[in-house]
Amino acid sequence: MEEIKKEISSYWTGRSEDFARLREEELNSEMAELWLRELKKGLPEGETLRILDVGTGCGFFSVLLAKLGHQVTGIDLTPAMIEKAKMIADERDVQADFEVMDAEHPDFPDGTFDVIVSRNLTWTLPHPAEAYGEWLRVLKDGGVILNFDADYGKEDLLGELERLPEEHAHNHMSCGQLEECDKIKKQLMINGMSRPSWDVEILKHLGCAEVTVDPDVYQRIYREENSPFYNPMPVFGLRVIK
């Protein structure tokens, strides 16, 4: 594994306990329904879709989509996150598969999935263009990618704390974790790009049939500032058709 990926995995291992707690709280809040609406809007027709949740973390999207009856596989680079995802799914009696796997190198045959979903992942990837190419490889012709992300590389975590609500997750991170995250971001080329225009350019270059940007996702999802789930960054949505 590349050194930067070891750093990334180590960082998320350190955050896995608090991250899992927050995802469980999110699943029990109105956020689950808000995100489910966003996902449903972008999904293609089909009662049972085969879905890959890339960078699943603790399985938030996987649980939501599996509860709809879809066949979901969640992958993540960090073993601790996958263990938490399995635990959360089991607690909710949800059937989903979870595997430790590199998002840039999904180990599946060509054309395996109808849909690929992702949330807050692309900004953490050392080789995002390569990742997009691999996601398209494992996606069926006419399949859909739903990628929700933000320009997190422009965010100064230590500098942002004062304007965040007390309950916000970043206020429960140690200074060391905040500094580690900022250090990682500076090493990733994607965080020097203008997004999501960079993503659109790459996806069109890769030959996608259609790329649509929704810049207003964050206005529909993050309406309450006094919330532990509040995100001050303008989250966008990308809907891509292969």
Rank of each mutant, 00 (worst) to 15 (best):
Lys84Ser: 13
Ala169Asn: 04
Phe113Met: 03
Leu158Tyr: 00
Asp114Val: 10
Ile88Phe: 02
Leu146Cys: 08
Ala150Ser: 14
Leu136Ala: 09
Leu178Thr: 07
Arg163Asn: 05
Glu155Pro: 00
Leu139Val: 11
Leu157Asn: 06
Asp93Arg: 02
Val100Trp: 02
Trp135Asp: 02
Leu121Gly: 01
Ile116Arg: 05
Leu158Gln: 07
Met101Tyr: 06
Tyr132Phe: 15
Glu162Thr: 01
Ala96Phe: 11
Gly142Pro: 04
Val138Ala: 02
Lys86Thr: 10
Trp123Thr: 04
Asp141Trp: 08
Trp123His: 13
Asp102Gly: 06
Asp97Val: 06
Asn171Ala: 06
Tyr152Lys: 09
Met173His: 06
Glu104His: 01
Ser174Val: 08
Lys154Gly: 04
Tyr132Leu: 09
Leu125Ser: 09
Leu136Arg: 10
Gly111Arg: 07
Arg137Asn: 07
Asn171Phe: 06
Glu99Met: 11
Ala131Trp: 01
Val117Ala: 14
Gly133Trp: 13
Leu136Ser: 07
Val94Ile: 13
Val117Pro: 02
Gly176Phe: 03
Leu121Lys: 01
Asp114Phe: 09
Cys175Asp: 14
Gly153Gln: 12
Leu178Arg: 12
Gly111Thr: 01
Asp151Trp: 04
Lys154Glu: 14
Phe98Gln: 12
Gly143Thr: 05
His172Ser: 14
Val144Pro: 02
Leu121Asn: 03
Val115Ser: 11
Gln177Glu: 15
Ala89Lys: 06
Ile82Trp: 03
Arg163Val: 08
Leu161Pro: 10
Glu155Gly: 00
Glu179Lys: 12
Asp102Ser: 09
Val138Gly: 04
Glu179Gly: 11
Glu130Asp: 08
Glu160Asp: 06
Gln177Val: 00
Lys140Met: 11
Val117Gly: 09
Tyr132Gln: 05
Pro126Met: 08
Asp141His: 14
Asp90Ile: 01
Phe148Thr: 05
Ile116Asp: 04
Glu83Val: 04
Val138Leu: 10
Ala169Asp: 00
Ala129Glu: 15
Ala89Thr: 06
Gly133Ala: 13
Glu130Tyr: 06
Glu160Ala: 13
Asp93His: 02
Arg92Asn: 15
His172Gln: 10
Val144Ile: 15
Met87Gly: 00
Gly176Trp: 03
Leu139Phe: 05
Phe113Pro: 07
Asp141Leu: 13
Gly159His: 05
Pro109Val: 05
His172Phe: 12
Glu167Cys: 11
